[in-house]
Write a protein that binds this DNA or RNA. Structure first.
Lengths: 338, 338
DNA sequence: TTGTATGCGTTATCAT
DNA sequence: ATGATAACGCATACAA
């Protein structure tokens, strides 16, 4: 049964509970032979340490919180799965906590959470990562955390990220290589750091190829489907509309695609559309979207690992970790019609 | 700060810790005036009970697990948010645990989870709810649980559900009223109970209106986009194809829509398409999908409430709870072309 | 209605 | 390298 305690193990192995504790926690200074004895007893009794007791006696709870404030289910699921993967590998539990990243009570709310559940640390996802007051509050309270794709990339705090800027540059380049010169761009929500990075990549690619940034072809979106739709209405109503639209999220790209259909504009023959994120919609839209795959799951797994390393007091790894994005070409982009 | 203990509160209020405990746990037999004294002290010290200590000393951990094995991010998010809503209201934490509903090691895996994290109970989502061996195992181990939309609807276990059968019947009726008589149907994954319920609703509506169930227009899908696409290929290749297709999930309906586009079939003019679930794709497809909205969030919130009531030992509410589905008509359905 | 004393299963301190 | 024992913060018989 799972009811065996450390005392039972100690008795069966013929050692003290402290020695069992050493083995369980992989502490040094245990003779190989005793370690094996203890491990055998643990296996035999199917012993599992009581997390509550560990938490009460020790300084750690082996519980981490994942904070999110993000409207995209697939992003959350990926972030969750990545963190979970790392946590269970390291023997930690993950407590998820949706919240409003701009709530005035966010600090108090999270403090309650951390204190109440005795969390050892937090994993932050965008755009919470970029709420400066909140992050400063965590620092001040001494609450450990790591971030997924944060804006602030200073050395102190651990984080995992990918190069949105470079990826957007590559996507824009892809469109340029196809022969497009009038390339529209739809911005994301201004509170997200990725919004600015992606736009910067778009600008860089144009400039690298001697093209000017066509300000009238750049519209302010918000990462949502409806936002993308509204921007597409504007862009496609222009006397001289773009031959390609790079929407900086797949949901917005989906909005562009639908708007084009409604106007009888054929994709990709008359209009190329590119997205960003590779959410499920990217393969479910018609035509399927050329997009950028962000390694969300890998990033959050890494963020969890970095956080746990920090909780453990070791910091063998660098506190920042970069992962690659991937350009995925599907059917929504092609050379412009002559 | 949040470091105050029950002793501090007792000292400040001039009572014993047992009295503080009574107030915190809302036990009876406390004089109004003492209760207020204690509450004042709690507020003053910003006291929060230590969950680990509560868990260790008592029988409860105030932690619930949410099990899922479901490919739809939006379903998971809704289920999660619903449970979370109820949990935080009741002072419980929610530990999420993705798993493989048909893994041979599922029982052992969950046992470890429950024992290790001292979970007070589990919330099951489909199709885990319908793994008979697993559910029997939980019963045998005395692990408390509640279910969201389970197949087995016996009295013993608490669950929340909605009437998939009725909703499917209503959708089919909607299509019949529009004038369709050749209505195709795409089945979901056979392991999901909802699959059979929805099909039963489809059949019932046809029969109620004196129509035969056209077996050649019923195809086996699996709830996924690609599954829906494959079925649509078959249905639309028929010499005498249906004028409407009721896909029993939105993802499959999305596959139908894309397949139709690829073949130049206009929706809804030449083909009506209906889905089920009202996932984000339903509003992001072109045209937007007529579908059924399932109250996933409300169901899982209710399931959590029922579970917590059971954990607390009270069962004032009935252990089953039914919520309504909603037919949502959008642009993908219309009267058939004459 | 209120208080006292014991134990929950660990970790950690200090010995040995 | 290993062990005895005191916390950890609370719930809960049991008393008063």
């Amino acid at each position: 049964m799972g009811k065996a305690t450390i005392d039972d193990v100690a008795a069966l192995a013929g050692v003290s509970i402290k020695t069992v504790s050493r083995v369980v926690n992989k502490e040094p200074n245990v003779r190989k032979s005793t370690q094996e004895k203890v491990e055998k007893a643990i296996a035999e009794l199917n012993y599992r340490p009581n997390q509550s007791a560990r938490s009460l006696a020790g300084s750690r709870s082996f519980l981490i919180g994942l904070l999110y404030s993000n409207p995209s289910p697939s992003y959350i699921i990926n972030a969750q799965n990545g963190s979970l993967e790392a946590c269970s590998q390291e023997g930690f539990g993950l407590l998820i906590h949706p919240c409003d990243y701009q709530s005035p009570d966010l600090c108090e709310e999270i403090l309650q959470l951390v204190r109440g559940s005795r969390l050892d640390g937090l994993i932050l996802t965008p755009p919470i990562t970029d709420n400066r007051d909140f992050v400063a509050f965590l620092d001040q309270e001494g609450i450990l955390y790591s971030s997924v794709a944060p804006m602030e990339r200073s050395a102190g705090i651990p984080f995992a990220y990918c190069d949105d800027r470079l990826a957007a540059e590559q996507m824009t380049e892809h469109l340029i290589r196809l022969g497009h010169t009038r390339i529209g761009f739809i911005l994301g929500h201004p509170d997200h750091f990725a919004t600015h990075e992606r736009y910067a990549g778009y600008q860089a690619a144009l400039e690298n190829h001697g093209l000017k940034v066509p300000k009238n072809l750049v519209k302010q979106g918000d990462f949502t489907f409806n936002g993308g739709k509204a921007c597409a209405e504007k862009l496609l109503s222009l006397k001289n509309p773009p031959t390609a639209i790079f929407a900086s999220s797949d949901y917005m790209a989906g909005g562009v695609v639908v708007t084009a259909h409604e106007r009888g504009i054929k994709i990709p023959q008359q209009l190329s559309v590119a997205g960003f994120d590779d959410v499920p919609l990217a393969t479910q839209a018609w035509p399927a979207l050329t997009t950028i795959r962000q390694p969300v799951q890998a990033m959050s797994a890494k963020a969890a690992q970095l956080l746990i390393a920090r909780i453990r007091g070791k910091s063998p790894e660098p506190s920042r970790y970069k992962l690659p994005c991937e350009l995925i070409t599907r059917d929504s982009t092609a050379a412009p019609q002559p």
